[in-house]
């Protein structure tokens, strides 16, 4: 068994950016790593009981769009009302068809496999987030506390 440690800082709150921290931490836990994920700023959206994560093509020229839409759809068109919901719907549909886990499922596996999920207390204050709206079993700490774990980690990622 490995005695490695993985520390991740999750800063983004969109559907696409939700995957790297949850995939890596759940897999690391399966490999026997001790794992902590520190959720800060928009990353705290990933700890909400009811996640309403979206994906946006706006400002993201690298995002492949269905039916070759990226070839003829003007960049500003991605800002139209309803585009975000449509892109999110299509992305989720594609993920399901390809057997990719939902973010909720990966997060549940993280909790089951004792990945330590940590909320940034400063962000909770900043955005007036209610702890009741976030999942149970979260520790709320600051940078100093996270660094005491990250300082000993074999891998530290900022996502």
């Amino acid at each position: 068994m490995t005695d490695k440690k993985l520390a991740i800082i999750a800063t983004k709150g969109t559907l696409d950016w939700a995957y790297p921290p949850f995939i890596l931490s759940s897999t690391a836990a399966a490999l026997g790593y001790e794992t902590q994920v520190f959720f800060t700023f928009y990353g705290l959206q990933l700890l909400k009981k009811k996640m309403n994560l979206k994906v946006s093509a706006l400002g993201n020229p690298g995002m492949p769009m269905p039916m070759g839409m990226d070839k003829w759809f003007p960049v500003l068109g991605t800002a139209l009302p309803g585009m975000e919901s449509m892109m999110t719907f299509m992305m989720k549909k594609k993920m399901k068809a390809k057997g990719i886990a939902s973010v909720e499922e990966l997060r549940d596996i993280c909790l089951e496999s004792e990945v330590k999920l940590i909320g940034c207390q400063m962000t909770v204050d900043l955005f007036d987030l209610r702890r009741d709206d976030l999942i149970d079993g979260i520790d709320y700490v600051g940078a100093g506390s996270f660094l005491s774990f990250a300082g000993d980690a074999d891998i530290c990622l900022y996502i």
């Binding site: 759940s26 897999t27 399966a30 390809k98 057997g99 990719i100 886990a101 496999s113």
Partner: peptide, 14 residues
């Protein structure tokens, strides 16, 4: 079958 990364590993571990 039909599961994508990292689910095969996670299910196996379970």
């Amino acid at each position: 079958r039909g599961l994508n990364c990292p689910l095969p590993i996670l299910r196996a571990k379970k």
